[in-house]
Write a protein that binds this DNA or RNA. Structure first.
Length: 490
DNA sequence: AACATGCGCAACCGCTCGGAT
DNA sequence: CATCCGAGCGGTTGCGCATGT
């Protein structure tokens, strides 16, 4: 065992792992004098350790009633940590005070480890057999002109590491192990093609991802809570057509869709910012033969659900087309915001209608809902001038608004927002993607929205964020109830 | 079996803050 | 008011173990 010693003046301070004898001395000291005046331990010559070191040793290891080291956090503890972290931030001591036997260091390490685990789960998608990496998938897709009909979409949960997503061209969904029915069903060309785009997570990783979404409990309808973790109650199995324009058949693959919950706050108003949620089974999901885009199902809400928004994105360009500007590339990151509650959706078999019916859903009159609507309906006039100049069509304007909302809210919301574009290898980190932008679209450098600089290479997520003014929320108007063009394919 | 790698955790460091003296 | 000290936090390091090759 290595034990560092540091010479300080006449005395030698010991550092590093504690010896059992040292622990004994420390315990005896506390028994006699109490857990206080830690510096006197050294001045009394009892231990060649700093008071701070003694205190930490006592608090983290020797204090009675502490849980044994290596004692894993239980699901209940994890849930509590997640919830409290969402409420309090990184107030580890405060959080630990609610967890008997846990110290702030325990909680901090747990959180740190958990974050890393989630990140790994998100960045390490397991590709089904026959596919080696994400970029290969994209190139495979590009060979098939039908792929443009997929309209890729993403389910986005924009907080921190949990902005997990399904991405790229074609439907990507998260599903857990055990969906062999789906994999096995991919026997024809079309389904194989789709199969290439599905990112899989094993159950544990999926749990990590899902449990990372906090504030679940207060949105779960009464009677729905059970011994089952809430995030697991929301796994659904749906029939999903390989192509939204293709009627579902009995051969359609099954995919489990995890409902993603999340919240963010408008840093300026402190109000609820965004939440994806779905509380109840969607009746439309079970209709065989219904030509429903699975995304339609995803955004059907529970009638009593709080104001919430499902973020989804659908690529509007063919894979062989380059975005017309970098701006547009970014806007495909998060294309659309569906505002809840959605009263009803069209079951007409027309995907565009379905989506439009969602977009046109009547607005709730609840204050929170209205407020949130406003936040999401920034007009172009409230955005940096460059936006209106560089947004090449109406399709992305509302989406840009939402993007600006994210950008404005704070930097952390953007840190894991990923840019999904056919040209981008999937699962690059944000910074990696941004680094690639100038290379891919160098001639559009001046159009790089949000950046005042004409030098595209100087652009980064941070520069975008800092270049937005703080009063971007000052000019708000209600969402336009007119027909949305969000989902009108180009 | 040996080695490499990854992961979790204990412990530390630097810093800030607030209360006591 | 200045200083000291304890508490707390974010970040980091290094060790030991588990797992993979």
């Amino acid at each position: 065992m290595s034990l560092k010693s540091v010479q300080t003046g006449d005395e030698v301070l010991r550092k590093g792992p504690w010896m059992p004898e040292e622990d004994e001395i420390l315990v005896e000291y506390v028994r006699q004098f109490g857990a206080r005046d830690w510096s006197s331990i050294r001045t009394k010559g009892l231990l060649p350790r700093t008071g701070k070191s003694c205190r930490l040793r006592w608090v983290n290891k020797l204090k009675p009633d502490l849980k044994r080291s290596g004692c894993k956090f239980s699901p209940e503890e994890e849930k509590l940590v997640v919830e409290m972290q969402a409420k309090l931030g990184n107030k580890w001591a405060k959080i630990a005070s609610c967890l008997p036997g846990r110290t702030d260091n325990d909680v901090k390490n747990f959180w740190s480890t958990r974050q890393k685990r989630i990140l790994r789960a998100l960045q390490r998608p397991k590709m089904p057999s026959g596919s080696t990496d994400a970029s290969a998938d994209t190139s495979d897709l590009s060979k098939d002109p039908q792929s443009t009909d997929f309209g890729g979409f993403q389910i986005h949960s924009p907080s921190g590491a949990a902005s997990l997503i399904a991405s790229g061209m074609g439907p990507h969904f998260i599903f857990a192990e055990g969906d062999n029915k789906f994999r096995d069903s991919a026997t024809d060309t079309t389904r194989c093609q789709m199969l290439h785009q599905v990112h899989t997570f094993n159950s544990m990783e999926a749990d990590d991802v899902l449990s990372s979404h906090h504030n679940l409990s207060d949105h779960i309808p009464a009677g729905k809570t059970s011994s089952t973790p809430t995030y697991l109650t929301d796994i659904k199995t749906v029939n999903m057509p390989t192509n939204p324009r293709t009627p579902m058949s009995s051969h359609s693959p099954f995919i489990r869709i995890f409902q993603i919950y999340d919240t963010i706050q408008n840093p300026k108003t402190g109000e609820l910012g965004l939440r994806t949620c779905e509380k109840e089974p969607c009746t439309g999901m079970t209709k065989q033969g219904a030509n429903r885009n699975p995304l339609t199902s995803l955004v059907e809400p529970l009638a009593s659900a709080p104001p919430c928004v499902t973020i989804a994105s659908r690529m509007t360009r063919t894979i062989k087309q380059r975005p017309r500007s970098r701006r547009e590339t970014r806007s495909t990151t998060i294309l659309s915001c569906f505002e809840h509650p959605v009263v009803e959706t069209s079951d007409s078999g027309n995907d565009s209608n379905s989506f439009n019916s969602i977009a046109r859903a009547p607005q709730s009159s609840s204050p929170a809902h209205s407020s949130f609507s406003s936040q999401l309906s920034l007009t172009d006039s409230t955005l940096p001038q460059s936006n209106s100049n560089t947004t090449s069509n109406n399709t992305s304007s509302n989406n840009n608004n939402y993007l600006e909302f994210l950008l404005q809210s704070n930097g952390s919301l953007m840190q894991n927002v990923q840019i999904f574009s056919p040209e981008f290898p999937l699962f690059l980190t944000t910074s990696q993607q941004w680094e690639k932008l100038p290379t891919l679209y160098s001639e559009d450098a001046s159009l790089y929205s949000g950046c005042n600089s004409k030098d595209a290479d100087s652009c980064s997520p941070d520069s975008v964020i800092t270049n937005f003014t703080a009063d971007v929320f000052d000019s708000l108007e209600p969402l336009n109830s007119a027909q949305s063009e969000w989902w009108v394919a180009q």
